[in-house]
Design a binder for these strands. Structure first.
Lengths: 253, 253
DNA sequence: CAAAACACTGTACACTGTTCGGACTATTTT
DNA sequence: AAAATAGTCCGAACAGTGTACAGTGTTTTG
């Protein structure tokens, strides 16, 4: 992971909630902070695997690189502002939504966010400085389990479990999605060149994996989506159901 | 994520299964490939958040940086060798282990690996070139669900769900573990300086979060472990139980 | 009008992974 | 035995990265 709560968190908190204070003397800022954050998101989205570059961002904004640092103390702070900005655009489950539907909605919209903004997966969350929209999302998740009669420890742990699962499974989805572009090879090409060599080394020592392979579980893309991506999305739903069922066993029963 | 299946996968596969072939002419290698991989793991472990540096690795080995590239085509391949090497050291559940205990063992030993080698979280898995020990681990996971009478799609999806959850929750644990060292602030200091400022901005708009805060769910470390780490470990177990319960509902019942 | 404060910028520093040309060495071929 | 060759090893360089610093110009305050 990279960049979490580096730099002065008090400053970050102020930026998140109050924005950038206008200078009391001297020339005004030529840009709004939100312009920088939006441009940074756009730039990071395009960069894909490669991290956001402050130079590229400055160029996109038509300013010098060093000028960015008059708006934002460092790249770490900028990333935190970007996280908050993404949260602002995410839908919240409407009030009166049942806990299961609500948690599912939150997880699904998180998946959408991770797929649209893969760099989110790189931002560590341990020392996240909470902005209003990130906080609202957490509040909504807690609210969903209001009527379940659970102790606070379980409520927070269950929400965290959904988040952790979502993050892990979304990483698998994003990796499957980006692999062809990153490596310049389609899933089919990949397995066609590797499968025979791998099978040879495997000998008879991995019967269950060999069975999967001959069953075509690895290759074969018979849809518009590449196979590994379709499989990752399929598994996302299946695994999410497992987690929600686990919660259900402690809520309803 | 960084580095997955970059470079020639056929070459990587050969390195993983057959090792480095001795040169047919000219001077022999001064080092064994395993020395490089082990040193790389040690170096990456120490580097913590910062990524492994080829220069630092070369220095540790007492060779020039460019020499590394006579052993390994690129850093991406090296990382794949490191993953395989870590898998070699991980325990497998003994035969005849029940599926629940077995999957739990696998997840727990994965957590240990993630905590010992945080860089594992950065390695993308979509285009992983499988080495023998990584494969053996997957085979063992599949074997645990042999007697459950599940279709292959469910078996693989359930194993993937445990893996995804483990990865996500382990990331939370590792981030909690590394945060104090990375930022130079303890959890307590962090919240003491931020909590009043945050509470002020929150107003009354986040009652459930405020309730958590006043209940001391955020601060207070009354153990040898920092609080956020203890909480992350606690949540790891709770969430893992949720996933396993979800699987159990489809296996036993 | 002078002085302070501040946005803005070109340049520099220390770092990254990787490539290239050359020096050296051990094996194979002649 | 001599020559050719493949391959290890290495110093230096290239194109990047985030950020610090000194300097310039502009706006507001006293």
């Amino acid at each position: 992971m990279e960049y979490a709560g580096r730099g002065d968190p008090v400053r970050t908190l102020a930026l998140l909630w109050d924005g950038l204070p206008p200078p009391k003397r001297g020339p005004r800022h030529r840009l709004h902070l939100s312009q920088i954050v939006d441009a940074a998101i756009a730039e990071a989205d395009m960069a894909g695997q490669a991290a956001l570059s402050m130079r590229a961002l400055a160029q996109r904004l038509g300013i010098a690189t060093a000028t960015l640092y008059t708006y934002v103390p460092s790249k770490a702070e900028l990333l935190e502002l970007m996280v908050e900005r993404v949260a602002e655009g995410q839908p919240l489950p409407p009030p009166e939504t049942g806990w299961r539907r609500g948690l599912r909605d939150l997880a699904e919209s998180d998946l959408v966010a991770y797929r649209s903004h893969p760099w989110l997966l790189q931002v560590a969350t341990a020392r996240t400085v909470f902005g209003p929209h990130v906080l609202a999302r957490y509040e909504a998740a807690l609210a969903l389990l209001d009527d379940a009669g659970l102790p606070a420890r379980d409520v927070t742990a269950f929400v965290a479990a959904v988040d952790s699962y979502t993050r892990g499974a979304a990483a698998a989805v994003v990796e499957a999605e980006q692999a062809p572009g990153q490596t310049g090879t389609t899933d089919d090409e990949w397995w066609e060149s590797l499968a025979p060599l791998l099978e040879e080394r495997m000998g008879g020592r991995f019967p269950r994996i060999a069975a999967l392979e001959t069953a075509g579980a690895f290759v074969v893309s018979d849809s518009t989506l590449p196979y590994t991506l379709r499989r990752a999305l399929d598994r996302f739903e299946i695994g999410l159901d497992l987690v929600l069922d686990g919660i259900g066993a402690r809520v309803d029963g």
